[in-house]
Design a protein around this nucleic acid. Sequence first.
DNA 1: AACTCGGGGCA
DNA 2: TGCCCAGAGTT
Length: 210
Amino acid sequence: MNVRKVTKIIMLMEEKWPKPVTELNYSSPFELLLATILSAQSTDKQVNKVTKRLFKKYNQPGDFAEMKKDELAQEINSIGLYRNKSKFIIESSQLILKDFKGKVPDTRKELMRLPGVGRKTANVILASAFQKNAIAVDTHVFRVANRLGLVKTDKVVEVEKQLMNIIPEEKWSDLHHWLIFLGRRICKARNPHCNKCFLQDYCEYYNSSK
DNA sequence: AACTCGGGGCA
DNA sequence: TGCCCAGAGTT
């Protein structure tokens, strides 16, 4: 992967999306944690509807810590995996109060102690809530980075490492949002809209499948 | 590495 | 009507 090509791709993305692109709405690290847990394997339209309604009533760890799992499950049952998510949110809230003085922790190691928080979610919190330099590799980032040819690997952690090697540190946070956004809108898993893509000239997948 | 959770949106 | 979705935990 040569530097000029990477630089050009970043430039084009920056031009296309000058402001950070995210469809998760949140106004605190804790709300971002909730929104991210809720978003797992669910579409943003469903999740945004639920989070908006939820945050009007509850948006602090203390609001969830003593809630019954069935009670919260009922609040969020219009999205999938709602029993798991209810459990994750309540147990994470309890741990945040117990071990982290009521604040969402800002290290990956601590974040990953929270139930429902894996490496991907931890990196989202680090990058977006705490302005730390992390790249969250979800299915979209994984697929798009491979298709563009930014990385060549079938392992998630390797994608993260390789991206960190070729992308300037100050762009890491933006990059993971761009790749996710691109993956969802254009570079879809099946039937990607290559004809609408502004990165055609720099995409290995497009240029090898013609 | 495979399996499970899961309702709603969309073709 | 069937397929898929801003993953993580368990086995």
